[in-house]
Design a protein around this nucleic acid. Sequence first.
DNA 1: TTATTAGGGGACAATATTGTCCATTATTAT
DNA 2: ATAATAATGGACAATATTGTCCCCTAATAA
Lengths: 144, 144
Amino acid sequence: MFSKACEYGIKSTIYIAEQSIDGKRVSIKEVTKAINSPEAYTSKILQQLKKNEIISSDKGPGGGFSIDNITMEKITLKDIVYSFDGDKIYKGCGLGLNQCNAVRPCPVHHEFAIIRDGLTRLLEETTIKSLALQLQGGLSFLKA
Amino acid sequence: MFSKACEYGIKSTIYIAEQSIDGKRVSIKEVTKAINSPEAYTSKILQQLKKNEIISSDKGPGGGFSIDNITMEKITLKDIVYSFDGDKIYKGCGLGLNQCNAVRPCPVHHEFAIIRDGLTRLLEETTIKSLALQLQGGLSFLKA
DNA sequence: TTATTAGGGGACAATATTGTCCATTATTAT
DNA sequence: ATAATAATGGACAATATTGTCCCCTAATAA
């Protein structure tokens, strides 16, 4: 579904948001521990998230990553997915045709349109804050 | 969504089925022309489909690939997807957790369950024959 | 101003996926 | 039998993705 990079990106963001709600900044090490991911690679992911203005970072002692409250309410899964995998998941053709639409559909176009629309809505409507709150409440988990 | 191999696999199978309805066997060249795919790679894909008993092949002049009527009614998209990408698309966790279920869900588990169930049903219920007939009727297309 | 802390970023390595090349085998028709 | 046809299969190459290493920069505190 999503690339590994995107999965790490989503998990990192949710974890950082959860900690930010408690006013805590987190280091790369803490993130990788929380989501069970390779440290150096996760570092790249976090850089990418910062470039896309999804998270903030501060260098030096007491520094780390954080998300302010307004941002975590505004940013949705779609923003993160778009940052890593682009829009092909919810816009692209299921069979990879360059042009595929209702007028000239691929064999699975109509069937997939329903799934894709559902996915798009889900990604658009799910905010990071809502996911962070669930995590904080012990209703969900970031690692197995 | 699906791997390139899987996309080629689905398209190839639909095309071969469409031609088989007319009693025609098709060569690799014809398949690659119909679905606009690299020839040698598609050859591997067709071998894989044969190994999984989704299509049949015959060597020599007049040979080629085909699917008998009973098989194209029985085989669904799920069978093909499973052959190339396994079941992670409709069974795996959206965030890549090894264990993710209703009791110990990842942050997007419940939201994704609905999408995944829809996808699973779609893949299970869509037969190759139904897709081949749509193609034959000019209602869908295999290349852009 | 210096040691320490923590993110930034470039180069590189491992792996998976996608794609190519070429020789071989099986089948059919002449 | 032989030539032509068409799939089979192994080795290899290109590319994308994932992951690592190591040094640099910025910020803070002593």
